[in-house]
Design a protein around this nucleic acid. Structure first.
Length: 199
DNA sequence: ACGAAGATTGGCT
DNA sequence: GCCAATCTTCGTC
């Protein structure tokens, strides 16, 4: 069943990041249903987190979604090429976000292969935030999409991920964030082949 | 196999 | 201008 608003508006973004592991990210875009089980997430703690776009309550056009109530998508372009899909959490004006880094393909694998211009199902189909967005058809116009709508949502399909199957590690690509670069706010499911390269 | 570089937009120093 | 929450391609070993 679809996760409701109450799931996203909780205050503990780290707990939500862990809870999202094993849930299914589903999109219905361009008339095609695609989905995958979330296997890797990263928490961004907003105001106090130097790696976050919303560090220090930074407010720009780009960061506007951060200040809305949890349960919407934040899609932004990185390196001018890739769209990264994030979920905004917590209440309005508290800029927490969770980056979805990898999913394990489930529904609509043919569609995902087509979008990624691949012919064979390999672990790189949806490993990595940029690849995942392409596979699921997520683009810039999906920024601020309400996750209780019918375009993008997250479902609980009864998969249980045990605590000892969750690996916490430092985030990548955020060395500039000083002490926050080392915080173990990246979560993945142990031994899942779709998590992006181990570090 | 692995490492280096390129693509390209937005926001900050 | 420069750098970023990245991925792919190309060159070399």
């Amino acid at each position: 069943m679809k996760l409701d608003k109450a799931f996203y508006t909780r205050e503990d973004v780290i707990a939500i990041s862990k809870d999202l592991l094993g849930k299914y990210l589903v999109t219905y875009i361009d008339g095609k249903l695609t989905s995958g089980m979330i296997v890797e997430t990263e928490a961004y703690l907003g105001v106090e987190d130097k790696a976050s776009h919303a560090y220090g309550n930074r407010k720009t056009k780009r960061t506007e979604p951060f200040y809305k109530e949890g349960g919407i998508a934040y899609v932004y372009m990185c390196y001018g090429i890739h769209y990264l899909f994030n979920i905004i959490t917590n209440k309005a004006d508290i800029p927490h976000a969770i980056l979805i880094r990898a999913v394990d393909p489930y529904d609509g694998i043919d569609t995902m292969l087509e979008r990624r211009k691949k012919t064979k199902l390999k672990p790189d189909l949806t490993a990595g935030p940029g690849a995942l967005s392409v596979a699921l058809g997520i683009k810039a116009n999906h920024n601020e999409t309400d996750l209780s709508g019918n375009d993008i949502w997250v479902e609980d399909r009864g998969v249980v991920v045990k605590m000892n199957e969750i690996i916490a590690s430092p985030r990548v690509g955020v060395a500039y964030a000083k002490e926050y670069a080392l915080k173990p706010w990246r979560f993945r499911i142990k031994d899942n082949p779709y998590t992006s390269k181990a570090r």
